[in-house]
Write a protein that binds this DNA or RNA. Structure first.
Lengths: 243, 243, 243, 243
DNA sequence: TATGAATGAGCTTTCATTCAT
DNA sequence: CATGAATGAAAGCTCATTCAT
């Protein structure tokens, strides 16, 4: 009988299709009801499979949730990297604008998930996205920023973590504001202005400005280096102290 | 029985004391376990009352949660206003610094609650803090900012909502970062630098002052941060030294 | 209002009545279906309470089972001790006969439980009657036997554990045989002969008495058994005759 | 495909090998976890076949269990008969000792199964080893005993069922005691003494002793026979009565 | 009004059994 | 026949809510 393996792809493909259906359904239900509020039966119903079937793909509700979350963050990272890769222009601020645009729209669309990620990190020890997944996503910005410094588009003395806090913080807060006003009064605040002001703030604040800035630099940079060395000496010293 | 109205105040006072006990207990339990994870029985136990008694004060768990949340935001608003009122100095940036300090420490301490507030706005239509409560809190910043403009300390062309997004956004994102790194590597990022850079950013970006600020600010701000960090390293070190 | 504590006993009494109802229902269901086969819902139904109520008395199904089992063995011990205490006569063999009679009828009536006790000791580590409970029960025989030795009714060289094995072993095996034939052919083997031969075996084997016992015993015992059987056949027959 | 009937034996042999594998696996799993605790999937895994395959050999879990149990008892019977057949010596008590030894070690090793057999007889009407299987096993003792009587090694007036109860009862109870003390205090009671005392009890009690016993016999045996005939007449009579 | 014992709907998870391949 | 993915009924257990006291 040649009925076996009519199409070798079909078997594997069917399983993968089912797994995707489960993840998609799970994501929807988790977003709508949170972790505790989500019912496995509803996930099964949406994925159009039996309840028991989920458990042959995932050990438990918690593991399913974890998979959904990690897949979400990995997807974000990949997309953000794709945005960077496909960016036509090469200038730092143009790329930053593309990233901001992507991040803002993503946050607006997936605010629930992002909230859930951090809420679960606190409450439910079992369902906790690894820090690494989050770091990978943020690394897209970090890399862009460092490259900007390397190419001289950004001040050498700009501090990465400060810039990062301003960038992601402002965008997320804006997203929340947009979201909250969206369904209320129809005076929808739009994403464009938010991104624009973000970029102009970065340009003014972190941009390697005209010469006058550069003038003060040498001396100050000298001081800065000395402080850095002092700090490292400190660390070295403290490590030698008894616990 | 002559037990009635032994003391007219006592009756009312007792009820109010009980209500406060419930709210306090509920807040603790909600923060620790989230809405779904919180158990009414634990709230009752902590408030030292019977389980059924809660239901003569609040219709349901959802209503209790709502009350706790609104009380929380109202409390925040009152405290923030108190911080503004008690501020010794009068300058805009000093007051802004005090507000930032207050907000950052509050967010770090109550991150769960703030998350919960927005998570519940989406998921659970029943438990949704009114927009007004949130607006009242944000109004503290808005008022300060407008007053700053009136007094000529801030540029007239500064846009309120942009500043607000940067202010709250950066602080919340920083708070989350601080929280996440706190329990990880012990290189604890501290609150001081975050607030300092926030203020210097505002000073440089929204300040109406003469050029000298704009010129030196970024670099000096950077140096300032490094000195802050050095200072904290000192603190950390001195704590480890024998008394 | 004097409605409180109409009857101080009522409150506690009601709880105790409910607990007894649960234990009784649980025992019935466990006996009928075994541990795994028993459904908590059926126990609740039989006890005429809600399913959840059981869990305010017992942490889990396993704990309930354990309580039932221990209560069963404690009850057996108490009853056996009562049988010993109330025994009119004082001679060892008379008391032994009373104990055998009690044990045999008990085992026949509760064979399931006794089986369950030992089956669970192996399979389910959580539900395992403590060895002590079983030892307490067996101790009734042990004490009787030792006392018989002290009083010179039993040979000083008789070994306790051997006698115990013969005593309980024979009775339990007989019980099983009786039970198995009971529901099959209606030629019911009855308890009397079993106990009689047990006693005569003990008398002959462990008795310290003069030879005459040893001599005639086996044969006469045999005749005695046959007369017993005949008597029972009479009984069975007379029950079937029209009133 | 010419794969059919490569070897006519192979086909049948393969099936039988598979069936044996299933039964062996099933037995192991049932013994380890009991009927309800056993999982078909584990049986399939141990038998190295697919889960569904079991169902082309056995209708259900219950039928599989039944087959395992009956095979177990049949195996016991065969082994016991083999022990009798291979017994070097010819004397009754020597053979009895061999049987006791075999039974005791068997019971210790398969206590779970023996328990299970009787537990299931009560609980699960579907899974109930036929009485015949059990009788066949016991018949080994019965035959030995009757043969002992025929050869004059055992008293003519000894009653089979009494002896059987003492024999199997004592051994099973001893087995349980040995098992229970084994994993507790390390004062392991061993099998040897148990068998020895069993044999000496039989020798003293049922052995065709010295003449004095024989003296009383004729007359008493005469009475005994008459009682037997009376009993049979009774049975015949009762059968003629209307139900 | 205060209580906490009682409730039962609803949850996650298991696993014997089926059936398309 | 053999397979194992899929199924869904049914289990133990939780906990917000009720209500007799």
């Amino acid at each position: 009988m040649a009925t076996k393996a009519v199409n070798p792809e079909t078997q594997r493909a069917k399983l993968e299709r089912k797994e995707r259906a489960i993840l998609e359904a799970a994501r929807g239900v988790f977003v709508e009801h949170g972790f505790d509020g989500a019912r496995m039966s509803e996930i099964a119903r949406r994925a159009q499979i039996g309840e028991g079937t989920i458990y042959s793909y995932y050990e438990s509700k918690a593991e399913l949730m974890l998979t959904v979350l990690q897949q979400f963050w990995d997807g974000l990272t990949l997309e953000a990297e794709a945005v960077m890769a496909s960016s036509q222009v090469d200038g730092f601020f143009e790329r930053l604008q593309a990233l901001a645009q992507y991040h803002l729209s993503t946050v607006i669309e997936n605010a629930d998930f992002i909230n859930l990620t951090f809420a679960l990190r606190r409450n439910n020890s079992e369902v906790s996205v690894s820090r690494d997944h989050l770091r990978h996503y943020v690394a897209v910005f970090d890399n862009l920023f460092r490259r900007g410094q390397d190419r001289g588009e950004i001040r050498q003395d700009a501090v990465l973590w400060q810039a990062r806090d301003v960038f992601y913080g402002t965008l997320e807060y804006s997203a929340r504001s947009i979201e909250m006003t969206m369904d209320a009064d129809r005076t929808e605040r739009h994403q464009g202005p938010v991104v624009d002001q973000m970029i102009s703030l970065f340009r003014a604040h972190y941009g390697a400005g005209p010469d006058e800035y550069g003038l003060a630099s040498p001396t100050l940079n000298n001081l800065s280096s000395k402080l850095d060395r002092l700090s490292e000496q400190f660390d070295a010293l403290s490590k030698r102290l008894p616990q």
